[in-house]
Amino acid sequence: MRYEFDWGLLWREPYFGWIVEGILTTFHLALLAWVLALFLGILIGVLRVTNSRLLRAIGATYVEIFRNIPLIVQLFLWLYVVPQMLPRDFSFWWNRLDHVPYWTAMIGISFYTSARLAEQIRSAVRAIPPGQFKAGLSTGLTQVQVYRYVIVPYALRIIIPALTSEFLTVFKNTALALTIGVIEITATTRRIEAWSFRGIEAYTVASLTYIATAIMVVLFMSWLERRYQIPGLIKRDESRL
């Protein structure tokens, strides 16, 4: 293998500026998509455990559709198909926005993630003993209040490990946004490689970004898990780490 390394390249312009911009784009895209996905995912997850058969069916259909179509295909649908379905005025307004691919990626990733989150939330809610629900109702809370004050806070704690891995999935999935033209960190390093033929140096930057983020998120979430744990509720499975 003959390859001359030139790590200094990464600190030279224009590459350094590109890298900073790429990392920032990856981060805010992931965070925005995550917030929206969490909101949608909780909504759909709760739909899937209500008593109404209609609402459950709506929730199940949503989950199956968004889970069984690959994310890249979904991004294409959001970019090329959905604007055509909308009222003409709205699609004019939409297409005139700056950074349309960025917003499209954000919407696409969050809908895709919300379906996965909804499933995690459903299984977390199922893990709650039904007695809790009945106890809530019998103390005079309405069904909505039981969810708001008993079930959801309880379920949130149970799903922390699942949330950790879902967040890291979102973070990795932002790389797919490059297929619709978002220049995040993977696209940036691809570009550096194309300009300089220094693939190893460039891809190392991207890989280290993902690895470092994964380590930080895992550490933060396990701290969070310990901080908010209800004693006796969750037995941490030590053998899995």
């Binding site: 790389a175 993977t186 891809y203 890989s207 983020t213």
Partner: peptide, 9 residues
């Protein structure tokens, strides 16, 4: 911890 697309590159 890496995306598939980056591993592919």
């Amino acid at each position: 911890s890496n995306p598939l697309i980056l591993i592919l590159f």
